[in-house]
Computed example of a mutant assay.
Amino acid sequence: MTRVVLFGATGMVGQGVLREALLDGNITSILSIGRRPSGKEDPKLSEVILKDPSDLSSLGGQITGIDACLYCLGTSAMGMSEKEYTVITKEMTLKVADSLLSANPAMRFLFVSGDRTDARSRTMWARVKGETENELMARSPAGAFMFRPGLIEPMHGIQGQRSLPYRAAYAAAPLLRCLRLPITNTEALGRALLQIAKGGAAAASAAGAAGKHIFDNADINRLAASAALTGAV
C-alpha cells in the first residue's frame, strides 16, 4: 500500500493524477498540497492549502511516512523571464524535494517535465526543466523519476489548455497520433506516475523500461498499458 503527496492537483495534469489515485485501491492516502482546494472529497484525500506550496515548514508530521511525491506543479513559460520561470519551475521544486527527502529519505520523487527537456537546450523552458531534473536525480539517484510527456489530451471532463494553439493541437490529435508524434492523455499519465510511485524500478522494468529514470512519451504510454494489463487500477 502506498501513501503519496501530490502537488498541483488543480492543474490539468494534477487533476488527471488525482483522479487515478482516488480510483487506485493500492493508494491508501493522498495528501494534496497547493494554493487552492481540488474540489474533490474522498476518505483517503487530505488537503493542505498554503500561500507558498514550497514552504512545508508548518506541516511537521504531516509530511512523514510518505512513499512517493507526485510533483505536477508547473506553469507555462510564455511571457515569463528566465528568472521568473526558474523560481517556479526549479527553485520551488527543489525546495519541496529537500523538505520531503529530509523527512522521507527512501521516498520516490516523481517530476512531470516535458518532451524535449534538456539542460543543454537553447530553449529556456527546456533548459530550466532539464537543470531541475539533473538536480533532483543528484539528490536522489535511486528514487527520482522524470516524466516527459508530449501533447497531453484532457479526459474525463478535465479542462485542457485554452489557448488557440493548444485547442488546435487537441483537434488535430488523431492525425498527430497517426504520424506517431508524442501524444498521451491525462488518464495514461496519471496511471504511469502511479505505477512508478508504487513499484519504482521494478514497475519500470515490467513495462520494458528497465533501468530508466527518465520516461519519454512512449515509456509513459507503456507504463499506463502495463497498469491496465495488471489490473493495477
Score class of each variant (00 low, 15 high):
T28G: 12
K40L: 07
M146S: 06
G231T: 11
I214L: 00
D55H: 10
V87R: 11
A168F: 06
A138Y: 01
R127L: 08
A224H: 07
H156T: 05
I183Y: 10
P43W: 07
T230F: 03
Q161Y: 04
S54E: 04
G25E: 15
P43E: 10
N26C: 11
M78N: 15
G208W: 07
A172R: 04
A192W: 04
L18M: 10
P149I: 07
R180V: 05
S54T: 00
L176T: 02
I27R: 00
V96C: 13
R180S: 05
L181I: 03
F147G: 05
L110T: 01
R108S: 04
R139D: 05
L23G: 01
A203G: 11
L189F: 06
M80W: 00
E135T: 09
K129E: 12
E187N: 11
L194Q: 03
R139Q: 09
G25F: 09
S32D: 04
L59T: 09
F111Q: 14
R3T: 15
P105A: 13
D55F: 06
F109P: 04
T93R: 04
S38A: 03
Q15G: 15
R180N: 12
E84D: 10
A97Q: 15
G11S: 10
I158D: 08
T64H: 13
L6M: 09
A201H: 13
E20H: 13
F109D: 03
S205G: 05
E153A: 14
A188R: 15
A209N: 14
A228W: 00
T117E: 00
V17W: 04
T184R: 07
T89L: 09
T86C: 06
N217D: 09
L101E: 10
P105Y: 09
N217Q: 06
H213P: 02
M92C: 14
A224D: 10
S38I: 00
M12Q: 15
F111P: 05
I49H: 00
L179A: 14
S29Y: 13
L151C: 12
A169I: 03
